[in-house]
């Protein structure tokens, strides 16, 4: 138990460091890598918090796909962030206010890990108790994901589908115009 807390704490400190580094490092390749590391660390915490499925996904997505995508984009756009002369005061103020509001909101949240919290006494116990009876699956998360809240998951696939369609809309090029572009480019060069 105490070991868990220590691991948790160390991971969290690393997370915070990574996060702050993301803000200050100006080499965007490094930032993309840092964000991948952030996701990996986050995935580790998820494991500690018993969310293995989530951890798996976060690792695959955050550390894997997102990072690849970012690197791909950086290859196109270049990797230096310019020094911005934006004043940090207003954003800082907003962030502090939002954070303070949230901390205020956590004041009377149930104690961490309390098995009698409303979250653990309403709805969820029914999943744990009945999943096997209803679906015959040991992995409750899969059962809830695909059956009890299968409609959410349909929506989730819809989101992914939307993203695919969106990217296609934005970036797919006509073959003909491609050639035209190349032509005009070569004309420019000559």
């Amino acid at each position: 138990m105490s070991l868990e807390i220590y691991i948790d704490l160390i991971l969290v400190i690393f997370l915070a460091i990574t996060g702050i580094a993301v803000i200050y490092v100006r080499n965007l390749f490094a930032v993309a890598m840092l964000s991948g590391i952030y996701s990996l660390l986050m995935a580790s915490i998820f494991v500690v918090l018993d969310a293995v499925d989530v951890a798996f996904t976060e690792a695959a997505v955050g550390a894997g796909i997102s990072t690849i995508l970012m690197l791909g984009v950086l290859a196109i756009t270049g990797n230096r962030e310019k020094v911005s002369n934006k004043s940090p005061i207003l954003p800082l103020l907003i962030v502090i206010c939002t954070g303070a509001l949230l901390v205020y909101g956590t004041w009377d949240l149930p104690i961490f890990g309390d098995p009698n919290a409303p979250v653990h006494t309403h709805v969820a116990p029914e999943y744990i108790a009945n999943t096997y009876k209803h679906t015959g699956m040991p992995n409750i998360v899969t059962a809830v994901l695909a059956s009890y809240r299968g409609y959410d998951t349909l929506g989730e696939v819809g989101v992914i589908f939307t993203a695919g369609v969106g990217v296609l809309l934005l970036l797919s090029r006509r073959k003909t115009t491609n050639k035209l572009n190349q032509k005009s480019k070569s004309e420019d060069q000559s």
Partner: peptide, 12 residues
Amino acid sequence: VFIEISSLSSYA
């Protein structure tokens, strides 16, 4: 979930 479906598609 549906906010995101409608939003992502409207961004595009």
